[in-house]
């Protein structure tokens, strides 16, 4: 049971994130929702690579014994890097939207265009 807790956390995080994206009207909160989903997926990847009682996968300074899988960690790092880029991009777009509309609430961003 105890080994399944990370997976439950993953599901919880993804659901929280998705519901934030779907139900929140504030653009910043939508971005936060996306980053929460991201964390959920990253947590999932990390959990996949963990073995009970293992140490960090650094060969040269390993005390011996089992090591965690390094590949999921590398994947997670890559995904974090991508996440940073995406978040930065979204935030910069939101800055522009805020500058134009003076609000972050999507309901108040009336469309004047056709």
């Amino acid at each position: 049971m105890i080994a399944n807790i990370p997976y439950l956390a993953v599901v919880g995080l993804i659901i929280i994130g998705l519901s934030a994206v779907i139900f929140k009207k504030n653009l910043i909160k939508i971005i936060i929702g996306i980053t929460i989903i991201q964390s959920g997926v990253n947590l999932f990847l990390i959990t996949l690579g963990y073995r009970e009682g293992s140490t960090a996968p650094i060969w040269t300074s390993s005390p011996g014994g089992v090591m965690a899988f390094p590949v999921p960690q590398a994947l997670t790092l890559t995904s974090i890097v991508i996440g940073v880029a995406v978040t930065a991009l979204m935030l910069s777009l939101v800055i522009h939207l805020y500058r134009h509309h003076g609000t972050l609430d999507v309901r108040k961003m009336g469309g004047d265009d056709q």
Binding site: I14, L18, V21, L27, I30, I34, I37, Q38, V41, F44, L45, L48, V71, P72, L75, S79, V86, L89, M90, L93, V94, H96, L97, H100, H101, M109, G111, D113
Partner: peptide, 30 residues
């Protein structure tokens, strides 16, 4: 502003899609 809105819409949708892909990859990898 409409361009920016379209860009924002696109990035939100495609990021969530990409995260789904990553999740699926993780499921297969696991």
């Amino acid at each position: 502003v409409k361009s920016v809105e379209a860009g924002f819409k696109y990035i939100v949708v495609s990021t969530i899609g990409a995260l789904f892909v990553l999740m699926a990859i993780a499921l297969l990898y696991g």
